Simulated assay, not measured.
Amino acid sequence: MTALPEAARGYLGSPFRHQGRSRSGLDCVGLVVLALADQGRAVADVTTYGRDPHHGLLEQHLVETFGPAIARTDLHPGDIVAIEYSGATRHVAIVGDYPGGGLSLIHTDQTVGRVTEHRLDSRWHRRITGAWRP
């Protein structure tokens, strides 16, 4: 069994597709679902969200799936974080260990059109609205 960040890295470069759940196209939730499945950990999927899964729906699903949130100040590789875009929580990512040191985010980034990994800098950290340790 591989660590969650390592499983997620297997999808780096995969294209973005809203509600996609395969290597040929996936969204941020799809990346979490597939990376966990690659570890032999089936989780309930949520596919009933629109382009803007806000109003607490995303966070509610994370709590139902992984339990209470953990402190955002205690992030470790393998944690799942919810991220704010345009004033609402609309995105999830997997925390990784950045190759150059520190932490990274592995996520399907719609703005670049694919699964990507980058350093978890202070700008991204401020946008984290919740964290879970699966």
Rank of each mutant, 00 (worst) to 15 (best):
H61L: 02
V95F: 07
A131E: 08
G102F: 04
L103T: 02
D52F: 12
R127Q: 14
P77H: 00
L58Q: 06
S24Y: 00
P53M: 09
A8K: 01
G87W: 09
L120H: 07
P134S: 01
T116S: 11
R51A: 15
Q39G: 12
G100P: 02
G25D: 03
L103V: 06
L103W: 03
Y98L: 06
G25F: 03
L26F: 02
E84L: 07
R114W: 07
T65Q: 14
G113S: 10
G20L: 03
A37M: 05
R72N: 15
I128H: 04
G102P: 07
G10E: 08
V32M: 11
R23T: 04
R41S: 08
V95N: 07
C28Y: 08
R51W: 08
L36I: 03
L120K: 10
A8H: 03
R119F: 07
V112Y: 09
A44E: 12
P77M: 02
G10C: 03
L12A: 04
P77V: 00
E84R: 14
Q110R: 14
R126H: 12
A69R: 14
S122N: 13
L4S: 00
Q110C: 05
L75F: 05
E64L: 05
H54A: 15
H107S: 11
A82V: 05
S122T: 14
I70T: 07
D109Y: 15
V32G: 08
S104D: 10
D52S: 14
R123C: 04
A3M: 10
A37P: 03
T65V: 12
G113L: 11
A82S: 15
L75P: 07
L26V: 01
I128C: 03
I83P: 11
G30P: 11
R51N: 07
R114H: 15
W132R: 01
R41F: 06
H54R: 15
A8W: 09
D52I: 13
F16N: 02
A69L: 02
G56D: 12
P99V: 05
V112C: 12
H18W: 15
L120V: 10
H76L: 13
E59N: 12
R41M: 10
V33I: 10
T48N: 15
A69Y: 07
V63W: 03
R126P: 01
A8Y: 12
A44R: 14
G87E: 08
V46G: 04
R23G: 02
D79H: 01
S14N: 08
L57F: 13
D97A: 14
A35D: 08
P15C: 05
S104I: 02
G87D: 09
A44V: 13
G87S: 09
R90P: 06
V29H: 06
P134R: 01
Y85L: 15
R51M: 11
E6S: 05
G87Y: 11
T73P: 06
I83M: 14
L62H: 09
I94R: 00
V95Q: 05
A131D: 08
R72K: 14
A82G: 11
V32L: 13
D79R: 00
C28L: 09
A8V: 05
D97K: 06
L26N: 03
V43F: 00
V81W: 01
H61F: 02
Y98G: 00
I106V: 14
W132Q: 01
Y85C: 07
D121G: 15
P77K: 00
L12G: 05
E59K: 10
V112H: 08
I83F: 09
D27Q: 04
S122A: 15
H107Q: 13
L31E: 09
